[in-house]
Nucleic acid binder design. Structure first.
Lengths: 213, 213, 213, 213
DNA sequence: TATGAATGAGTTTTCATTCAT
DNA sequence: GATGAATGAAAACTCATTCAT
């Protein structure tokens, strides 16, 4: 076995692997686009491969079926989302103002993350529940994480005396609900992208004070 | 020139029409059940007709396809929902307390309506968007009606001085959002049916005061 | 048993039978229309009964199926056609001129008969062969009758010396062929109804002289 | 932005295209056979694919439905027919004898073409009109071409003085009619294949001289 | 007897998946 | 490994025919 030959084959192997990975990513991107455009259920494997002019067979070399590529997309989305929110903000706020600022900061961060994942976010927000019981459950879990996070902070605030006594579970769910609704409008295009930050501030304000006088 | 055979008794005509209507309603009821049980997309026409033991052909005499029966169900649902909320509460509240009470009353009413439509409500809340772009749009319109309703009242309250100045559009959307989230939990079974009223009260409280101290 | 009652029931019976016959005829007429309009194969029983606003079931009280009503129509058509042509013109022509006149007379008679059966004639001329092997055969038989008739006269003429020697079988077929083609154009609407007689004369002339000088 | 995976060899592409074309042709051939054997209307897609043992799906990858494959067959037939008759015989005949010979030559050519297309010819001659209003129209157009062709030559002959004055439109139609009738008998099996040429001669003779003495 | 709602066997049609090239 | 033609199981859909009213 010649040295040179071996090197070439080494190179070849790498480039093959890279090409393969590139195809996989291209398929996922295409799937995301098509899912958003036509809806998950109306999308056929042929639509996905047609989007990037790749053979039907190629799809099946990379994914088991349509459900699998949706799952892969979801995993990617969930990972990037949780990566951002798992490292809980180290110093807990101690005072209404600090809490308010922390909330705003969290919202800003969320907006940023979602902005870069628009397509996937929209896909799963709107259609996630209808894809699969399994995926529905995973989605619910993610939302639950946010509820838990909100509740954790809210309970702190109540304990610290800078939030009023309330059913923190329900209120946390409410907060997540209003955020989701806003998200839906934003990603769905009903809200101008530049007004998102303002809206976030308004929501935080509303959460802290309600609309009462 | 049309030939007209011997007249048929009015009686016969009526009984035929009634039978037809009964079958149609039975199909819709069956479809609702099956959609809820298996999900819209996993449901086949054969499942629906199997549910009430009518022929496959019967289905197609009444509806063009699966989409059509879902549309009919939605229309029925939307109608009963709007019927309840269109006759706007005659005397507008004039004061924070009255407003709060009116809100609670509205929530109670909504709960009542939805309780009797549990299945359909859940179906459309969870899967509506995934059925069809068209149905998705209709769904969005309904939600929008509630946003408009909320905003109408909120603007009144602000003008009357018993609600603080705020972006009433965003806040109204937020209110609808928190209601939807609660609904989802409730209809999905995460919340005990008997606690719904309490939750409603908590939400109203939250909307008026926020969680601030 | 009262005399009067019996008489009434007698009358009743007759009117029932008449009504029944009327319905049957109306169905046949309707079928003829729809067959011509949509083609035999594209016609559904529901189209036929829809044409005269009669119940589906009624159709089956009168005819076994779609094929049966087509058969009845054909029988009616064939009968009226043959009735006209079976009583062979008593005195055989004896001379070219007489023969020519007899041909013209026969053509005129055919035109008259067909004019009153336009619809059916068109139907069977165009679609007869495609309905059924059986009906195709019946149709072929009718045409054959005309060929035989033509050949009979032609052979006579040849024997009598006022037609040239020729393959009378082939020539007779040719005569029937040209007549059919003309018929198709006429009934199909390509030829003005008022020019049919002229065309008939032209054809007879052509048959006798050819187009040679 | 389209992603394009690794290029496929030209070779592969060609072999795929060839395979596809082969399948398409096989389907058309099978359809022709089955249509002739069972009749167009009695033929099901399953019969066609069964004839050559390909999957039902394969059919639908190549044709929209049964009507489409019949249309393709017709186009193919019409093309091969017109290809033979469009290049109008260069030197126009100038004299009765030449005209007669040209006619015989044309008939011989037609017989030759049709002999090699027997099945399709019979199919469309007998059932074409019943397939579809559209196909019926196309069929009529083809016949019209022949009428036009005949009329062109006849008009020439009249102008040249070697055909008598007559309504050339009607006579041309008649010529086509007699040819069609002969065709029907021939292809349908009523006439021995070997006698076709004789019959053609007889028809030409008849057209030139009629049966008059 | 007439009716038209219901029926379901029989076709068409789709599309995820396989597999020869 | 990539490809896209072929596949066929499974679903949708049709419509002649039955049958309760």
């Amino acid at each position: 076995m010649l040295y040179k030959g071996s090197m070439v084959s080494e190179l070849r192997k790498r480039s093959d692997a890279e090409r393969r990975e590139r195809t996989r990513l291209a398929l996922m991107e295409a799937a995301g686009k098509v899912f958003v455009r036509r809806g998950y259920h109306a999308t056929q494997v042929s639509h996905i491969v047609g989007e990037i002019d790749v053979g039907q067979g190629t799809f099946y070399r990379h994914f088991d079926d349509k459900r699998a590529i949706a799952g892969a997309l979801f995993d990617q989305f969930a990972e990037s989302l949780l990566a951002e929110f798992t490292p809980m903000s180290a110093p807990l706020p101690s005072g209404v103002e600090q809490y308010r600022e922390a909330s705003l900061a969290a919202a800003a961060r969320a907006v940023q993350v979602l902005r870069s994942q628009r397509q996937l976010a929209l896909l799963f927000l709107r259609q996630g529940a209808s894809i699969d019981l399994d995926l529905d459950g995973q989605l619910a879990q993610i939302l639950d994480r946010f509820v838990v996070l909100a509740k954790f902070h809210l309970d702190r605030a109540i304990a610290g005396g800078f939030a009023r006594e309330c059913d923190s579970e329900i209120v946390s769910q409410a907060i997540v609900g209003m955020a989701l609704r806003q998200l839906d409008l934003w990603l769905g295009g009903s809200i101008d992208d530049r007004r998102v930050e303002t809206a976030a501030r308004e929501l935080v304000e509303f959460a802290f004070r309600g609309f009462g006088p």
